[in-house]
Amino acid sequence: MPQTPQMTDDASDEEIVRRTLINKDAFALLIKRYEAKLSRYLTRLGVGLAEDREDILQNVFIKAYKNLNSFDPSLAFSSWIYRIAHNETMSFFRAKHARPQVILNEESEMLITELEDEMADTSLLAEARLSKEELTKALETLPQSYRDALTLRFFEDRSYSEMSDILQVPVGTVSTLLYRAKRALKESLPKTFLP
């Protein structure tokens, strides 16, 4: 594995970016830091096969490397690289003419709880518990843009501002997307979960 001299694991993303522009080996730290997170994100976006995820991830990091100078330090680096990952994944789906799968892994219980809490707050959901399968089915019926918004908000725990930077839409549009996504999800859920 290439060495990244003078860079430690607690260096900020921005410092690593600056360092990478001088010494490309420093890029390894960024890959190490984001590989697992992005891989999970890709799964949540619907890339089911591990090989596909690896290919996309490789493209994401190469694209990020080539465009490092376009990274604007006024944004979070994570938003920037998530944006690349999102765009790359959408291109992948378009090229494959594939419909993204909804894959809820072992973390889904926690995610369901988060979603339930959020929806209970907005009076969209009754007390009944959602199962992973029921949530998967409901999510599958949603348009991609709604799923993207729900994924970033509830599964990736992103703020509206970060979502705006990742999806490249105004913050107001993020709010609208989330509101509509939650309503659409409510309509897709079995009747037993509705108030």
Binding site: A28, E35, I62
Partner: peptide
């Protein structure tokens, strides 16, 4: 992944596009 990405960068002589 790290090796593959860095190797790709090396082999294809990729450099960050100028600012």
């Amino acid at each position: 992944l790290i090796e593959r990405v860095l190797k790709n960068i090396e082999e294809k002589h990729l450099t960050p596009r100028p600012r």
